[in-house]
Design a protein around this nucleic acid. Structure first.
Lengths: 109, 109
DNA sequence: ACTGGTACATAGTACCGCTAAGTAGTGGAG
DNA sequence: CTCCACTACTTAGCGGTACTATGTACCAGT
């Protein structure tokens, strides 16, 4: 992946995954394919799983293990209350940054 | 600074500084105060200087040393051709990410 | 002499995405 | 029945970037 994109994803990828999870529980492999379908074609699998471990340890998601027809059991993640709070803050942070950048792009010094 | 903002700035702060520099050469201390005035009130001074060293080593800016009325000489940075190219790519990367996130925010799965 | 503003530098830390490799289960092709 | 492809998760080590903390240096006003 491009160096710029890699750096820019730091901090935002977590928010993206939390957003994907709202009202839509999903498991790791599924999330990876979802991301790829959204255009993030080069997101590494390992990155997603590591991120999921992190947000679980931070208590932003609840986890349920379910058997799969194919392969090992799935770990299904669903956003909990704390996760929604974190997502709210994420959107706030994003909005701030986004507005500043759009202003800069229009040449607003 | 908030943990989220810190992470989100990774990758974008460089672009922000490059954008500030377009058609407007500036020195480190000045850039820091500019950023603070733009709302990035908690950007650490050291962060800016480290970033400037980095973009200079990457060859994105030209540097000129000028005496200051007050304090040590200033290092004035101006965007060069390569820097403009990098900034272009930054805006492309940013646009991509920005569009995906706005789509997500509107609930577009 | 001291304080505060100007101006730059850097060593150490933490976080996060990536690379690379591995484990494990199922099903189909040869 | 063996191998390969797909599903599904895990982990060790690396690199890049922002932060913390501290230091250096120069000048003005009190």
């Amino acid at each position: 992946m491009g160096r710029q994109m890699t750096e820019m994803l730091k901090g935002t990828l977590e928010g993206i995954v939390l957003a994907l999870l709202t009202g839509n529980p999903a498991y790791g492999y599924e999330i990876t394919t979802l991301l790829r379908r959204q255009g993030f074609t080069e997101i590494a699998e390992g990155t997603v799983y590591a991120l999921l471990v992190r947000i679980e340890q931070k208590g932003l998601v609840d986890v349920e293990k379910r058997p799969s027809e194919k392969g090992p059991p799935r770990k299904v993640y669903s956003l909990n209350e704390q996760g929604e709070k974190e997502l709210d803050e994420f959107w706030n942070t994003w909005s701030f940054l986004s507005e500043r950048l759009e202003q800069l792009r229009k040449g607003g010094k």
